[in-house]
Write a protein that binds this DNA or RNA. Sequence first.
DNA 1: TTAATATGTTAGCGTCGTCTAACTTGCTGA
DNA 2: TCAGCAAGTTAGACGACGCTAACATATTAA
Lengths: 151, 151
Amino acid sequence: MTLSSSLEDYLEAMIDLFNHEGKIRVSDISAKLRVEKSSVNTAIKKLKNLNLITHEKYGEVILTEKGKIKAEEIKEKHIIISKFLTDFLGLSDQEADRDACKIEHTLSGHTFKRLLFFIQFMEESPFFDKNKWKESFNKYLESVESLEREA
Amino acid sequence: MTLSSSLEDYLEAMIDLFNHEGKIRVSDISAKLRVEKSSVNTAIKKLKNLNLITHEKYGEVILTEKGKIKAEEIKEKHIIISKFLTDFLGLSDQEADRDACKIEHTLSGHTFKRLLFFIQFMEESPFFDKNKWKESFNKYLESVESLEREA
DNA sequence: TTAATATGTTAGCGTCGTCTAACTTGCTGA
DNA sequence: TCAGCAAGTTAGACGACGCTAACATATTAA
């Protein structure tokens, strides 16, 4: 079963709300994703049909086991991509988060795994010292970005 | 002006055809992107409105200067992402190409620049020897992927 | 030269995901 | 307790983007 980007976003928002608020309400999803409540409703119907959530009129949204698993998968992708963007590309947390939201829908399972392995490999690598690397990458960035500003 | 993923795909296909065939025809775009010719026609109308191409009934598609610049930008993103996927994540050319097609639409300009700098930095880095790195990353991959196969 | 084939166009439809507007239901504090 | 507001729902519209079917034009090969 392959979800659209949009439905993945909804599912991810749902598990976030569940983890942080303990319950999943239409208006909170709506606020989080900045879409109208009616749009949330449409998504709810679809996710319900896929057995990823249960929902009764005017009730809370409940993630099924299947839904939780799927949501966690998406969440994991998000976290790993975000980590790559901050730790290796030096992006701010916000920027990384914003971009991860988009990229997470496009990485194939295989590519995602490779990215994960890459991060682990780099972190474990004997010739790779995270702090040293970060420092010199930042220096590199400064020099190259100051060149850009001049141009 | 921000293009949809779809329109970016069309523009990219167009510049590829221009570079390799010397001319841009509806059926070639259609074949390349695996969509119907009628869909190509819809896209042509939109790109024409954006002054990225010119086109007369039954004639060739011509990229405007603006269109060429935009197309080259997209193409560059594709190439760099593809490079990252093959050289650092060890994906096959085909797989890298396939994924780059999707990712290229989602990277912000800033993030893309950072990825580019990252690659350059790694390649120039004194503590980073490409061949050595590749060898040990492949070893790492093998071990970790064989563990997966067992599980 | 002209008939067959390749190429290009148009019209109309379906799906997805969003929106607004109007409505119903639930909750809360004076 | 009940009036008013917050939360949730429904109906209907729209734009983007794909498709098929039918048609128009261009090209080519006999």
